[in-house]
Nucleic acid binder design. Structure first.
Length: 424
DNA sequence: TCTGGGGTCCTAGGACCC
DNA sequence: TCTGGGGTCCTAGGACCC
């Protein structure tokens, strides 16, 4: 039995640049860059000159000197995206958003009502063009992965069906980077071993790929190369982490400046947490040094919280724990008789980015109900950690208890939590 | 050229538990 | 007392995607 191709991947072309061209006729037909520092999106006219999204604005203007640079209007993109997703939802309830400008649709239940998948995709493209004024490309295939590859091939403003039975003939001649999950690092590893096309990769056994790339990645890519992708369309997915970060440029920042910045970021993150009606349990601080090396430091709290003072204090403690430490590379200075205090990591390396992210997200009522915070609930009840100690030192002994009722130890009984007496 | 901001998933070692 | 296996959680890093 040949399965029907009923999965659509719908992808708005050069999304934010298209919104800008829609809203300002003077921009139509001309190279447009959205965002000055780093290119958020480039119109197809600008892409013809070699501009890519995520390119630095400097390089983009060098390649395309006549490009018109417009500021980011995030609200306009959100509004356009909502209008497009309403059209998606009108075709089928099985819509899985991937990002602001991209979604999978399963139309297998809409065939009798709306026609075959190509009819549905054609209607989708026409309605988005007429009602929202934006170009949409659609790929149709038997799997999510292949529909995504097809929409990329269909761009710009195109429609491409990969006919059932013709999947491998379509897929195998493509370069390995056409596979979702092959970026620069993986491509280099593959190409250095003579694996250039999807067909080349498909011919290798798992054991060989596993040696090149690691077990899971190797098996995953080999499956994709044979168009084996059993993932269904998932509606109602929720973010698993919420975070915010800020790049700081080359200017030197004092320890106090960085603490202030991390507190402001924590404030932004907790506001988004509350708006999303989520609590977070693990605070992750990202630091990028002057040489662009990135590190993360994290601390898992006993209970999830959205309290700004708790999260900000833990984030600040994680940040200063790294930056105020003596720099190991400078350690020899004092031994050779130099004066003054030892250099800190901050003094020695500088910082160009800080970020705060919350993971272990759950709904507030999970706490009230005493539900475990993860699949098993084990480990969620570990003893007090440094972050909590620091909060107490700063805000008083009951600060944490006030912020998020503190469970005091591993033997505290909570309904639904596995208890020691259950163990063999 | 000098590199944004928002995410996901995988790996691996150590702690800890039974 | 020593040893082993199986499992989860925490932490850190890295690749990748839009």
């Amino acid at each position: 039995v040949v399965p029907a191709a009923t999965i659509l991947h719908a992808d708005l072309d050069a999304f934010s640049a298209s919104v800008e061209q829609r809203d300002d006729p003077a921009l139509r037909g001309r190279p447009v860059l959205v965002g000055g520092g780093v290119v958020l999106a480039a119109s197809y006219e600008a892409r013809a000159a070699g501009v890519r999204s995520a390119m630095s604005g400097y390089e983009a203007r060098r390649r395309c000197p006549h490009a018109i640079v417009v500021p980011v209007r995030f609200d306009a993109y959100v509004e356009a995206s909502k209008a497009v997703f309403e059209i998606f939802e009108a075709m089928t309830p099985l819509v899985e958003p991937i990002s602001i400008d991209e979604a999978f649709l399963d139309v297998s239940g809409a065939l009798r009502l709306l026609g075959d998948p190509v009819d549905i995709a054609t209607t989708l493209r026409r309605r988005v063009r007429e009602e929202v004024g934006l170009p949409l490309s659609v790929g149709i295939a038997t799997t999510k992965f292949l529909a995504k590859v097809a929409s990329a091939q269909a761009k710009p403003d195109g429609l491409l069906l990969v006919p059932p039975g013709g999947e491998l003939a379509f897929l195998h001649p493509l370069p390995v980077e056409a596979l979702w999950g092959v970026g620069p690092a993986t491509r280099d590893k593959l190409v250095s071993r003579g694996v250039r096309t999807v067909g080349d990769l498909a011919g290798l056994p798992d054991s060989v790929l596993g040696r090149f790339l690691g077990g899971a990645v190797g098996r995953h890519l080999r499956s994709l190369a044979w168009n084996v992708d059993p993932r269904r369309i998932e509606t109602g997915r929720r973010d698993k982490t919420i975070g915010s970060q800020r790049a700081l440029g080359p200017r030197r920042r004092s320890s106090q400046d960085l603490r202030d910045i991390v507190l402001a970021i924590a404030d932004r993150v907790t506001a988004r947490l509350r708006k999303a009606e989520r609590l977070g349990r693990t605070v992750i601080v990202t630091i990028r040094f002057g040489d662009m090396q990135k590190i993360t430091r994290s601390r898992t709290l006993i209970e999830p919280t959205d309290d700004t003072s708790v999260i900000a204090t833990v984030a600040e403690a994680l940040l200063t724990g790294v930056l105020d430490a003596p720099d190991p590379d400078s350690a020899g200075l004092d031994a050779h008789g130099s004066t003054g205090p030892p250099r800190t990591v901050l003094d020695a390396r500088g910082v160009t980015l800080v970020g705060v992210r919350l993971s272990g997200l759950c709904r507030p009522d999970a706490v009230q109900l005493g539900l475990p915070f993860d699949a098993t609930g084990r480990g969620a009840w570990r003893a007090v950690d440094d972050g909590v100690d620091r909060i107490r030192a700063r805000f008083g002994r009951d600060a944490v208890a006030r912020a998020a009722t503190l469970h005091t130890g591993p033997h505290h009984e909570v309904p639904g939590r596995p208890s020691a007496v259950d163990a063999p």
